[in-house]
Write a protein that binds this DNA or RNA. Structure first.
Length: 802
RNA sequence: GGGCCCGUAGUCGAAUGGUAAGACGUCACCCUGACACGGUGAAAACUCCCGGUUCGAUCCCGGGCGGGCCCACCA
């Protein structure tokens, strides 16, 4: 018998029990059931799940559980994105900088394993049901081997190459970064107006405006707009760069904005992306302006100073020399590194690239072939593909990352690739596959850089489906059915995964993409530690139960839309679960002596209200099969909430109590029909709620239904069958009228301060179709406690006589 | 500058080519044999504004105003 609802006891018990039962197991050799495979996002191993994780993983779990009920062989793995700068920072803070690279990496691994254990525990506490036998970590040797293999394959096809190129560079992290890792931040800076003396006329000068005087030494030209009449005479002449006294030419380019500053722009290698464009367009020389730590190079006496320091000193010098004409405040947007928040520079260096240019159309058409939920999110991918300007920089100068499987010759630069059979390799410590450069005999040097973490995660669907490891497994699971992920990483994770999958397998990696939004704080702002508005999931589970948190997730389900967290919703969820529990207790007690198998094949004496319930539940089965298929969990949960609370509990239960309690008066047959209806309706409700509220529904099933139904657990049972012929509009119409009459009686009692169970001597109902009431008079009399019922024909009106 | 999303009771939020769920909050009443973390009722929305299509629009189209996100530009 169901006792009190105690989630703290129920939830962990079922979490353990499901594993014992193998309720979530994928059966790779089961050829009978269709496979539903999920390319679950591997969260970055920060040590804590946040509400965004909870929402998105709840969505995934609901999908997995629903598909299992529908008879799919669900492949639901869970992985971890381990490698990244934040971990290095934390480990360095704890252990200092004295460790060797190998020791450092080892500490990172240990640290990450601890965090994974914690996060895995949180996922379990939420009732998430991945098949943990397929867990993966991006830092594992096996994962490294696959990433390296994928790069070797792409290298063979000339899709991976090494080149000198200006790249976004974070001087703080001392690493190249991809455009997708940058974030624009608005800040205020000063626009400095600086005199450049004319070379040809000696005494004439022009004034240019710049925000980056520290790059004067790298100035290789100045530009004006070709139509700018003010400067037409200057074009082709030369001006002297202050301090360094180098002459540079005055050139024209239509991309100069004549209205900005003085309409003359100095071009340095490289102040921003525009400079890169102009350098290529006008074939200008490149002055290496800065080193990897952001210190000036080739800057005379300022060489070695950090940019900010150099800027101050140079401005001082310009000012004292009378060369700085004026300064203006300027609002400016700077690119910053999204991981550390520091401004990024553009530096030329040797990096590894993946060839993206030229594949935009292929990526777009792969995107078009997928089902995007909601559909407009495809546009994010298309827009991004349309803006690809450079290839993808995949090397990062970090330690805790997947090593790039390459060596190169110190003398001639020839690249030597790792032996595919010996993966994973670490070129820093492992010997090269051949002792000397095969081309010139020079010494080989192992690549020190590691992979961008998107190189790791962009093969997640290949990893989980055992690409090149288990052909049968791969054929069954790849392409995966579902890729769930956030909006903010469409241009990275989704984009790179589609690209890599196309390059490596020729196929798109998944069929459906489910995009979730972000969970904001209750104030509508992003949750952040600095704002102090972070809501920890553990506390919510503690206070409201995991099922309530899951129900909140389903309620928050507007796809790809950010939503503030709502205590109101989770409180409602908790109340609903309690209501479900209490009503189940009532049903359980009402079913005493009822045996499901004895009703099979017999015809029951249903009353109209029973037919109404059976009709409504079948409508819900039909509706919610579609809603679940569409990932529209909001519609699922609201329709079930409303039906259960406001139809099943508020009306139906009240309308059958007399048949259950007074079978001597109303007949055993009537009682049995009511019992059957209660049994079926609650069972179907519980099944439809299982994906969202697995713990509570499992406990209800276990107590009331297991003995009758035979499935060991609700998680292993089947989605309710639809009996279309039970949909009965006539019965629904009669029940609606009955409920309207009961509402009027209740209103009367409330207005007259009567108890709801107080008797009334008569109720007179006028309605357009009084014959509809014939079948439900018993319910009016019993649920309304009306001694006498009179009906007549006319516009609806209910008169109560106390 | 470009793209996308959004604008419904005090608040949050569904739905629909035929004037609109539900929740929270508010008010009144009721401890009715599952539930007071409950029950029954009440009050509360010219569905942002202006046009158009339509017999009829909150829902479709155009324009505006307001909010959000992404991208580009920013010497």
């Amino acid at each position: 018998m169901l006792g009190n609802w105690n989630p703290k006891e129920i939830e962990p018990r079922w979490q353990k029990r499901w594993v014992e039962l193998g309720a979530h197991n994928f059966e790779p050799r089961d050829a009978k059931r269709p496979v539903y495979s999920i390319d679950t996002p591997p969260p970055f191993t920060s040590g804590d799940l946040h509400m965004g994780h909870v929402l998105s993983y709840a969505y995934i779990d609901i999908a997995a559980r629903y598909k299992r009920l529908r008879g799919f062989n669900v492949f639901y793995p869970q992985g971890w994105d381990c490698q990244g700068f934040p971990t290095e920072v934390k480990v360095e803070a704890k252990f200092g900088k004295k460790l060797s690279a190998a020791e450092f990496r080892q500490k990172c691994v240990e640290w990450t394993d601890e965090f994974i254990a914690k996060m895995r525990g949180q996922m379990t506490a939420m009732g998430f049901s991945p098949d943990w036998r397929y867990e993966y970590k991006t830092m594992s040797p096996a994962y490294h081997a696959k990433v390296q293999l994928s790069l070797l394959k792409m290298y063979e096809n000339r899709l991976v190459y090494r080149a000198e190129h200006p790249v976004f560079w974070c001087a703080h992290c001392v690493s190249a970064i991809a455009k997708a890792e940058t974030e624009d931040v608005e800040r205020e800076t000063e626009l400095n107006f600086i005199k450049f003396i004319s070379h040809e006329t000696k005494d004439g000068f022009v004034t240019i405006a710049t925000t980056r005087p520290e790059l004067l030494h790298a100035c290789v030209a100045v530009f004006v707009h070709p139509d700018d009449a003010r400067y037409r005479k200057l074009v082709g002449t030369h001006v002297h760069v202050p301090i360094y006294d180098r002459a540079v030419e005055v050139l024209t380019d239509p991309e100069v904005d004549p209205t900005f500053g003085t309409g003359i722009v100095m071009m340095c290698t490289f102040g921003d992306k525009q400079d890169v464009v102009w350098t290529y367009r006008h074939r200008l020389p490149v002055v290496e302006s800065m080193d990897r730590h952001g210190r000036l190079l080739n800057a005379g006496e300022f060489t070695g100073l950090k940019a900010a320091e150099a800027k101050a000193k140079i401005l001082e010098r310009l000012k004292s020399g009378g060369i700085l004409v004026k300064q203006e405040k300027l609002k400016q947007t700077v690119k910053t590194h999204d991981r550390c928040g520091k401004p990024v520079e553009l530096l030329t260096s040797k990096q590894w690239f993946c060839k993206l240019k030229g594949f935009e159309e292929a990526i777009k058409s792969a995107g078009h072939a997928m089902k995007w939920v909601p559909d407009f999110t495809l546009q994010y991918l298309v827009d991004w593909a349309n803006f690809i300007e450079w290839d993808w920089v995949i090397s990062r100068d970090r330690i805790f990352g997947t090593p790039l499987p390459f060596w190169s010759c110190r003398k001639c630069g020839e690249v030597v690739t790792a032996d595919e059979k010996k993966l994973p390799v670490n070129p820093i410590t492992d010997p090269p596959p051949c002792p000397k450069c095969p081309k010139c005999g020079g010494e080989l040097e192992g690549e020190k850089a590691t992979c961008d973490c998107w190189v790791d995660s962009s093969i997640s669907p290949l990893i989980v489906t055992k690409w090149l490891d288990d052909e049968d497994f791969y054929n069954r699971t790849f392409p995966t059915t579902l890729r769930p992920q956030g909006t903010e990483i469409i241009r990275t994770w989704a984009f790179y995964t589609i690209y890599r999958s196309l390059m490596l397998t020729g196929k798109p990696p998944f069929k459906e993409v489910l995009i979730n939004g972000m969970v904001l704080a209750t104030d509508g702002k992003k949750m952040s530690k600095s704002l102090g508005n972070v809501i920890p999931p553990d506390k919510l589970i503690e206070e409201y139960s995991a099922d309530a948190v899951r129900q909140w997730s389903a309620l928050s389900g507007a796809f790809a839309r950010d939503k503030p967290f709502s205590y109101k919703d989770i409180q409602y969820a908790k109340s609903f679960i309690l209501k479900l529990w209490n009503a189940s207790k009532f049903v359980e007690k009402s079913l005493e002596g009822f045996e499901r198998r004895k009703t099979k094949g017999t015809s029951l004496k249903f009353r109209t209200v029973d037919r109404w319930m059976l009709s409504r539940i079948n409508r819900l089965i039909k509706e919610n099969t579609k809603n679940y298929d569409d990932y529209n969990y909001f519609a699922v949960i609201t329709s079930l909430q409303d039906f259960f609370w406001h139809e099943f509990c508020d009306f139906y239960l009240e309308e059958v109590k007399h048949r259950l309690y007074q079978s001597e008066k109303f007949g055993e047959e009537s009682k049995k029909a009511a019992q059957f209806t209660l049994y079926v309706t609650l069972l179907d409700i519980v099944k439809m709620l299982e994906p969202i509220l697995p713990h509570t529904t499992e406990e209800i099933y276990d107590s009331i239904y297991k003995a009758h139904e035979g499935d060991k657990s609700l998680a292993q049972s089947k989605w309710p069958a639809l009996y279309e012929k039970d949909i009965d509009e006539k019965a629904e119409k009669k029940a609606v009228l009955l409920n309207q009459v009961l509402t009027e009686i209740r209103k009367f009692k409330a207005e007259n301060k009567m108890a709801l169970n107080a008797e009334i001597s008569a109720v007179k109902v006028r309605t357009l179709e009084p014959e509809l009431l014939a079948d439900v008079k018993e319910e009016i009399a019993e649920a309304g406690k009306a001694k006498k019922i009179e009906t007549s024909q006319g516009d609806f009106r209910v008169e109560v006589v106390s």
